[in-house]
C-alpha cells in the first residue's frame, strides 16, 4: 500500500521529470468535457489538529509536560500550541541532525485536475516534435494556505526529547536543538495553467 504513496511522491518530486506551465485555451478547455481524468476538490493538510506522537499540554512550560506531551508555541508564549510533523536528517555517520520541525498547515483548493494527455501539436510547433504522453495536473485557480508553519534547525539527535524532564520521566537534559529560522504562512495563492510531467531520458 505504501508503495503507491512513495511512488506518487517520487513521481512528483524525485524523478528526472520536466515540469512546464501552460495556459489553457478555450479549445483545450472545451475538449476536456466528458473525458476521463479527474477533477479534485478539497484539502491537503499536515497536522491541522496536531500529531499522533505528542499531545498538546495544558501549559507552555516544558517542565510541566508529560513524556508524550509537547507544545510548539514560541518559548514564553502564554498558551500552548499543537505541534506539526518533524523530519530530521543526519548527513554524517556520527554527526548532528538537520531538523525541519513543526511542519503543518492546511492547503485547500477547488479544481485540481489530473489526466493523461498526448501532446503532438501546438506549443508553437514544438508539440509535433515532442509527440509524447504527459501527466497533466491542471492547477486550481486558487490555493488557500491556512495556519502553515515550519521551523528549520539543528539538533544533536534525530528524535525530539524534552530537555526539561529527567531521563526517568521520558526526557533528556542533554538534548539540544537550535532553531535557525521559522516561518508562518497564511493566505491565498493564484495558480493557473497546467503542470505537465513526463520522463526524459
Amino acid at each position: 500500500m505504501i508503495s503507491k504513496v512513495w511512488l506518487a511522491i517520487s513521481a512528483l518530486l524525485a524523478m528526472p521529470a520536466f515540469a512546464e506551465m501552460q495556459a489553457l485555451d478555450d479549445d483545450t478547455l472545451s475538449s476536456m468535457n466528458g473525458q476521463g481524468g479527474v477533477y479534485l476538490s478539497g484539502e491537503f493538510s499536515i497536522n491541522k489538529d496536531g500529531g499522533v506522537l505528542w499531545s498538546k499540554p495544558v501549559s507552555n512550560n516544558p517542565s510541566t509536560w508529560t513524556a508524550s506531551q509537547r507544545s510548539c508555541a514560541n518559548a514564553g508564549a502564554t498558551t500552548p500550541e499543537n505541534c506539526g510533523m518533524r523530519v530530521a536528517i543526519r548527513s554524517e555517520a556520527d554527526g548532528g541532525w538537520y531538523v525541519l520541525d513543526n511542519l503543518k498547515g492546511v492547503f485547500s483548493f477547488e479544481g485540481l485536475t489530473l489526466r493523461t494527455r498526448t501532446i503532438n501539436s501546438g506549443f508553437n510547433g514544438d508539440g509535433a516534435a515532442f509527440n509524447q504522453d504527459v501527466l497533466e495536473f491542471g492547477l486550481p485557480n486558487e490555493v488557500k494556505f491556512k495556519d502553515g508553519s515550519f521551523a528549520f534547525g539543528v539538533a544533536n539527535q534525530g528524535g525530539w526529547q524534552n530537555k526539561s524532564l529527567s531521563v526517568a520521566n521520558g526526557g533528556n537534559p542533554s538534548y539540544q536543538q537550535t532553531n535557525i529560522f521559522s516561518a508562518k504562512i497564511d493566505g491565498t495563492i493564484r495558480m493557473q495553467g497546467n503542470v505537465l510531467i513526463f520522463p526524459q531520458n
Binding site: 484539502e43 497536522n47 489538529d49 499522533v52 510533523m85 554527526g95 528524535g159
Partner: peptide, 15 residues
Amino acid sequence: MYGVKLQNADIRANL
C-alpha cells in the same frame, strides 16, 4: 544520509 527520522505525522487529504 546516515539516518532520517520522521515524527508526529497526521497528514490528511480530503478530496
